[in-house]
Every structure is written in C-alpha cells, then in structure tokens.
Design a protein around this nucleic acid. Structure first.
Lengths: 111, 111
DNA sequence: AATTATCATCGTAATATTGCAATAACAAAA
DNA sequence: TTTTGTTATTGCAATATTACGATGATAATT
C-alpha cells in the first residue's frame, strides 16, 4: 500500500496531518528557517544555501507553495519567495490548539 | 532515491523534521486525539476506535513510542498507552519556538 | 535573434511509508 | 497445561517520497 486511507479520517485529522507532512523534511525546515531569518524574501539564493540540486529545491518549494505556506512572486527572471504570514499564523494556531488539548491532571497508569 | 539526505542538515533541522514526521499521518493524529480526549489512558480499545487493522494500529503506536510521544505500560495481557507529558511539552515548545521566529514587520515583495 | 540566467517540469531510480494477513509472544484464565 | 485474549512482529504488496539529470519555459541581456 503506502497510500494512507484519508477517507477514513475526518477533515480536521487529515488537515492537521497534511500540515505536519509539509513540514516533515529537514530541507523544508531549512528553507523556512532561511526565510524566517532574513528580513526580506529570498529571491533565488535558496539553491546556494541548501545542499541539494536546483530541481530538488524547486520540488520542496512547490510542496510548501501547495500548502500555501509560501508565496512566490516573479521578479524579472527570478522568483521571490516569502512566507505567507496568514497561513503561517493559521497553522501555528491550529498546531498550538492541538498541543493545548492535553489534560494537565494526573491521568496515566504509571503516575 | 526516497532517502532524505539527513546528514546534510543540522541536528535542529533533522529533529524538528522528525517530530513533524511522527505527527504527519491522520491515524496518528486520531490516536493522539483519542488519548487527549479521555481523562485516562487507553488500554486496548484503540483498535476499535480506528478504522484500521490491529497490525496497522500497532505499527503507528510503535512510531509514536519511538519518538517518546507515547509510553506504554503492560497491564496484564493488555497494554496501557498514554501520552508522555514531558515529551509532549518539549515538542510543543520546540514547535512553538519555530513558529514564533517570524518577523512581524512588513518584509515581502508583494506587501 | 541569439545567449544567458533562473526556475519549473519530466522521467527515472532508489528508498520509505502504509496496510494487512498471518503468525509469534505472552500473560491470564480455565 | 491448554485455551483465550491482546499486542507485536514478519513478510509481503502497493503507493508515496526524495533526489537529480535533462529539458522546457520565460525573461533579461547582448
């Protein structure tokens, strides 16, 4: 198989899993960190920063764009990438909400 | 390929990506939500709740245990699962830190 | 128009993930 | 000790992901 049976789970579960999946690769973390670090968007230099080929970087960027985490703007013959702040705060809140669900009272067998 | 070139990224990036990867499946989200929802640990009923076979559920549990997100305690012939709250808060903080890095000033080309 | 620079896409290979049936492991109960 | 109940593991098969060379597309430069 290898195909996850998405239809068996609800939208919230699938959506949250998709967000995590988009972030589940060190190259994509590195891309986002680079974008976060700079006080400007990155126009083309990402390939130089990453230890991967241009084709591979482009693929990772595509995944992040598909999730709307990044937006790309064509600037002459370069493309300018930056983080979509709306999406960023949305998913940040969704993830925070997921983690906050935990019950702080003593509940486990072994406590 | 299919093998991510982990050695080319730093520990922080690999670690964060591994956390996201552990959470990047709707079944694992569902497992965690079930554990979060109850005010006790789940001792065996997880397979009934999930639309997957026992073998598959066991595999997902294994992944979560490997990341120390879950802990399992043997209780007679059942196993009692609960969230490892230490790990939970640690990764919650790491992820929150990642998302907070964003610079709130206007920085993108298209703004 | 030809060249150059930059990014996307295609094709392909290698590896990883997901899923389940079958079966093993193991403890409790009979 | 045999049986029963529960979870883990093994052994596939199917699909997804990662990576990169080659190539395509497009815009600026010459």
């Amino acid at each position: 198989m290898g195909a996850s049976k998405n239809m068996l789970f609800d939208d919230g579960q699938n959506n949250l899993a998709a967000i995590f999946k988009a972030l589940a690769h060190p190259a994509r973390i590195a891309i986002l960190q680079e974008l976060l670090k700079r006080n400007s968007c990155v126009c083309g230099e990402l390939v130089d920063v990453l230890p991967l080929s241009q084709a591979t970087v482009s693929q990772h960027l595509k995944e992040l764009k598909q999730m709307n985490i990044l937006q790309g703007e064509i600037e002459g013959k370069r493309v300018c990438y930056c983080i979509n702040k709306d999406t960023w705060s949305t998913i940040s809140n969704e993830i925070a909400g997921f983690f906050e669900q935990i019950n702080q009272t003593k509940t486990c067998c072994n406590e």
